[in-house]
């Protein structure tokens, strides 16, 4: 199974919905809340977002090698299955 890593915000409803999507399907994932993270972790997340040409917008989800920014169940499924 592909590794799923999410960058999220504790204040963002779309991050909550994204987590729910994976939980409902019993797909294990790791997540880091950007707003609760220490400065060094925040910097790492910002650099990761920017290296993918994205703004610091959440949820930022890595499914294997693929990246989805935003709540997009169709893309989550597509990348999980590909």
């Amino acid at each position: 199974m592909k590794k799923v890593l999410m960058y999220t915000l504790s204040t963002c409803p779309w991050c909550m919905r994204a987590k729910k999507f994976f939980r409902e399907r019993d797909i294990p994932f790791e997540f880091i809340d950007y707003d609760k993270a220490d400065e060094q972790t925040q910097k790492m997340i910002r650099e990761d977002c920017e290296s993918h040409g994205e703004e610091i917008a959440f949820p930022f989800i890595k499914i294997g090698e693929d990246v989805v920014v935003g709540y997009n169940p169709r893309k989550y499924s597509e990348f999980l299955e590909s």
């Binding site: 963002c12 993918h52 917008a57 920014v69 935003g70 709540y71």
Partner: peptide, 22 residues
């Protein structure tokens, strides 16, 4: 981005997708 605001002609916000900046 967060969906608090939508265009005035939008009746069903669930149909609107988040499209990343890239």
């Amino acid at each position: 981005w967060c969906g608090l605001f939508v265009h005035k002609d939008v009746d069903d916000p669930d149909k609107l997708l988040q499209i990343s900046r890239k």
